[in-house]
Design a protein around this nucleic acid. Sequence first.
DNA 1: CTCCGGACGT
DNA 2: ACGTCCGGAG
Length: 364
Amino acid sequence: MQKYTHTFENEMNDQGFLQNTTEPKRARVAQKALKSWYLEHARPLPWREKPSLYGTWLSEVMLQQTRVETGIPKWHAFRERFPTVRSLALATEEEVMKAWEGLGYYRRARLLHKAAKAIHESGDFPDTHAGWIELPGIGPYTAAAIASIGLGEAVAAVDGNVQRVVARWGGIEQPVDSKPGAAKIQAIADAWLDLQNPGDHNQAVMELGALVCSPKKPACDNCPLTSTCDSADNASLWSRLPVKQPKKKPEAWNLTWHVATFLNHVAIEQRPETGIWAKMWAFSETPPPDSFAEAGDLCSPVNHILTHKRITATFKHWQAPDLSTLRTHAKNHGGEVVTWTEFEQRARPRLLTKIWNELCLEKG
DNA sequence: CTCCGGACGT
DNA sequence: ACGTCCGGAG
């Protein structure tokens, strides 16, 4: 874990004078400003109200790759469904997946469940950063966030918000996702860290990234760091930062789902353990045998754009001659037959839930 | 459309 | 170091 050992060398300022304030001083000035700003501007987020390790852990995992506004209602619903880590540990994976429905990155739900079992098994939550990072689904950021917020451990948490704030503040031009770039970001984050109050400090940096130092239009006028920030009111700099390594284009993907039905019953299957929508419930990607009557498309092709795939999904409708044929067909694919209403209880990809009413309307 | 965002498997 | 996983906002 990162300690407060980094030191900066003295630098010339842009007037060419040797600065009488060393870089660590500059970091302390930023830290102080951040602290008082946060006292005034921290949002009343639900997991901050009655903080608990369980609530903090859940919020941090949910907020990996998920926006706060999306996370809030899901966090409440999840806590209601699984009030304790024990109840989560004793739940089935199916139930956990269902509670995660719509949040995306479904592996997070399975890793959260695995971690809950490990915590339940060991009798309590880990009480150090080192303990947390051992758990499934807990990486460097999440471990640091939980350890600082929940345990008061002095570790700097670096997420996307922090990368942006720090890269702009320090004028870091290297890609933040490269090894040298990440090291620079971490060094500054470590130098900023408030050792007395690491949890609030980390949240302050992230809050600043969310509320003020936003990706598109940072509000430098309202920023507590303007006096020390390299990018303050410098659009040609902040608009380029943070630098990220170029990402490859998503591939186009045509997906055909074969919707085999008999009256209000439908054959469904659980997707494989790996790949897109792992272990979510959907339709078969292979057509049923000849005894099924082709009944056209259930709806016009649906476009669903993800970062890594541009999906065009077609829903081909097939009518089974009778219920037992439908059941046999489903069973051959490791699937099962349910009513549409029962299907709604399963964890389904967003692509399905977003056009669910159209599918049901046409189901006949 | 473009951009945003952590963990983990390879 | 790079690819794979999702969904929502602008």
